[in-house]
Amino acid sequence: MKITEIRLYLLSAPLDEPIGNALVFFASRQTLLVEIVAGGLSGWGEAWVGPATAAATIEHQLSRHLIGKDPTEIGALWQKMREANEGDAVMPAIAAVDMALHDLTARAWDMPLRKLLGGTRRDKVRAYASGPFFKPGGHPYRDFGRELDGYLKQGFQAFKLRSGYDPTDDVTAVMNARRQIGADADLMIDFNQSCTPRRSIATFADMEEARLLWVEEPVRPTDLAGYRLASSHIRTAIAGGEAIFNPAGFLPFLADGSMDVLQPDIAICGGLTGVSQVAALAAMYLRPVIPHVWGSTVNFHAALHLIATLPPHRAGGKDPYPYIEFDVGPNPLLDLAGRPQLDKDGMVSVPDRPGLGIDLKAADLEPYTTELRTIRA
């Protein structure tokens, strides 16, 4: 079996109204989906950071190492792509290719992706609602209560609020959310890199009674000293790492003891091969990995299968980690193969069909496809 074709789908899905975090608002969801074809089968991957740049990188730098090659030699192809391209900016493109190679190989071998990744530790995963989001024009937190009601009705029992826009409103929103979701639900906040260490520390101190499970990205992602300062004063777990492109980038935070929950994004940090390297590092330091999940249904299902293989960590939540991040904002790209469903306990089942376990077709992408590029020998 040889790779005969690579298809690059640049997607954009407009939203009815902008949403965002403390740093940025956006009016559409955009990503790159990569389809690799071999032996009458295909596999899907994704790069949602700089999708146009990732597409150009695959077309002009990576495809020469892929066309005509055996797609099941995933590790060798990953190393070849990495060795041939300097710097970490190439990692989202490698991630998309790597994800597609894993999906294709698991389909060729007629097994769920989780088996290819090492075997199943769990067939259901606790999902946390990643939302509500801020909205521009008026009070940014104005829909938090109404949207949390919606998440509760869907069956979520864990919630991650966006924070960092205004310290006083952050505290009010968190305390209100704790009363609304009840004492037993899991509650986390995400500062999205928007604060200085001292502001994160002071804001957390005023909301400590809410019993947060973790505080995410309290400072900028490269600020090791800031993570050290925040972790020495914030009494709950510190999470981060979604903006780290290189698996080795997690090592200073592990050695420093300043990051308790590692959140590499499979679509950013070198794909399933790259994030598996992060998981190996985390295992040496007995730290949990809970992948950051953004983009489309492809990245979501890649994370779901990886999470099914990871070791458990008891960290004070309703269940042992790992959980899966469930984007509850408006996102048509999460609906491409049917939106994942929660059971009555707020869990998501890991598909047992081959590969990612989703039936994705080019026709499903057509309403959102702004450009399609095809690479052949």
Score class of each variant (00 low, 15 high):
Asp123Arg: 03
Asp123Met: 07
Asp123Asn: 08
Lys124Trp: 10
Val125Cys: 03
Val125Gly: 01
Arg126Asn: 00
Arg126Ile: 00
Tyr128Arg: 12
Ala129Lys: 05
Pro132Ala: 12
Lys135Phe: 11
Lys135Pro: 03
Lys135Ser: 13
Pro136Arg: 15
Gly138Lys: 07
Gly138Trp: 05
Gly138Asn: 06
Pro140Ala: 06
Pro140Tyr: 04
Pro140Leu: 07
Tyr141Gln: 04
Tyr141Lys: 06
Arg142Val: 15
Arg142Ser: 11
Asp143Gly: 03
Asp143Glu: 09
Glu147Ala: 14
Gly150Val: 07
Gly150Gln: 09
Leu152Cys: 07
Lys153Val: 06
Gln154Val: 05
Gly155Thr: 03
Phe156Leu: 08
Gln157Val: 15
Gln157Trp: 14
Phe159Asp: 02
Phe159Thr: 02
Lys160Asp: 03
Arg162Cys: 02
Ser163Cys: 11
Ser163Met: 10
Gly164Asp: 03
Asp166Ala: 04
Pro167Met: 08
Pro167Val: 02
Asp169Trp: 09
Val171Ala: 15
Val171Ser: 13
Val171Tyr: 15
Thr172Asn: 08
Ala173Cys: 14
Ala173Thr: 12
Val174Pro: 05
Val174Trp: 10
Asn176Val: 01
Asn176Cys: 00
Ala177Ser: 06
Ala177Glu: 01
Arg178Ala: 00
Arg178Asp: 00
Arg179Lys: 01
Gln180Asn: 05
Gly182Pro: 05
Leu187Met: 05
Leu187Lys: 03
Ile189Leu: 05
Phe191Met: 08
Phe191Glu: 00
Ser194Lys: 01
Pro197Phe: 01
Pro197Trp: 00
Arg198Thr: 05
Arg198Gly: 03
Arg198Pro: 01
Arg198Phe: 02
Arg199Ala: 13
Arg199Asp: 14
Arg199His: 10
Ser200Thr: 10
Ser200Gly: 11
Ile201Glu: 09
Thr203Arg: 11
Thr203Trp: 07
Thr203Phe: 09
Thr203Ala: 11
Thr203Gly: 06
Phe204Pro: 05
Phe204Glu: 10
Phe204His: 14
Ala205Trp: 10
Ala205Ser: 14
Ala205His: 10
Glu208Pro: 06
Glu208Lys: 13
Glu209Pro: 03
Glu209Cys: 07
Ala210Met: 12
Ala210Ser: 11
Ala210Ile: 09
Arg211Asn: 15
Leu212Met: 02
Trp214Met: 02
